[in-house]
Structure formats: C-alpha cells, structure tokens
C-alpha cells in the first residue's frame, strides 16, 4: 500500500482560502479583543493570582514597587503612571520580565509558573491621549 491517502504537495488556490480564513479570524479577534479595551476612567492594573483578583492598582499616580507571591514564586512589580513592569522574578522562564512594560488597556503580563496575571483595564485606549497635561 502506498500512502493511505496521498496529499496534494503543491499549494493551490484552496490553500489560499484557508490562509484567508485564518487572517479573517485574526482580524475579527483583533477587533473584538483590542477594540474593547478602551473605555473611560483611569488606567488600572488588575493583579490576579491563581484565577482570583487580589488587587487593583490605579496607575494615575505612581504606586511604586509591590511584591506578589504565587505558587512558590515571587514577582517584583513596578507600578508607574501609565505603565507596569515586572522588574524581577524568580521563576525559571522569566517570560514576565521579558514582556517589558505594558502601557495600554488590554495588555497583560503573565507569569505561568506563579499563576500571576497583571492586566491593564480602563484608561485611554487610543494614542491620542496626551503624555502630560498642563493647566
């Protein structure tokens, strides 16, 4: 018996259809997930550990540095006006540190080993919000 089913080995127009479907899915997803972030109110970091929300930190004023522990791992997090950064973590992957600073509503930092999520909500979603206000 040759192959159970011999596949086509050259890409054709139908494959383009699959690609189109994935692109459309990505676009639809982007619109719903990225678009909704907006809203009014202050940019707030929501910290959850193990699926439970443990703290909400308003980023309008600098809240400074805080330490969270989850599942045996410790994260040192910097809260600044307009952004959150995991400065230090003792987890093996360091994904959360590599994420850098998150600044926009909808973005998040995830520490899988520690089961800690820091997610931004509220705040101006668009780039038209000023960095500084005088008056």
């Amino acid at each position: 018996m040759p192959m159970r089913r011999s596949p086509k080995l050259r890409p054709n127009g139908w494959d383009a259809l699959v690609i189109l479907a994935v692109v459309l899915l990505a676009a639809a997803c982007a619109v719903t997930v990225w678009g909704r972030g907006g809203g009014t109110g202050e940019l707030t970091a929501v910290v959850s550990i193990d699926g439970r929300e443990v703290e909400r930190v308003a980023l309008g004023s600098a809240a400074g540095e805080r330490v969270y522990a989850g599942n045996g791992y410790t994260l040192t997090v910097d809260f600044e006006p307009g952004g959150v950064t995991v400065r230090e973590a003792d987890c093996p992957t360091q994904d959360c540190v590599h994420t850098g600073t998150i600044t926009r509503s909808g973005q998040s930092i995830v520490c899988l080993p520690g089961r800690i999520i820091i997610q931004l909500t509220g705040g101006p979603a668009d780039a038209s919000a000023p960095d500084v206000v005088i008056g």
């Binding site: 960095d131 500084v132 206000v133």
Partner: peptide
C-alpha cells in the same frame, strides 16, 4: 515627540 495636552478651561 511628547504629546502635551492643554487643559480646556
């Protein structure tokens, strides 16, 4: 450049 907002009086 930095975006500076002027408060609307």
């Amino acid at each position: 450049p930095w975006r500076v907002g002027i408060q609307d009086p």
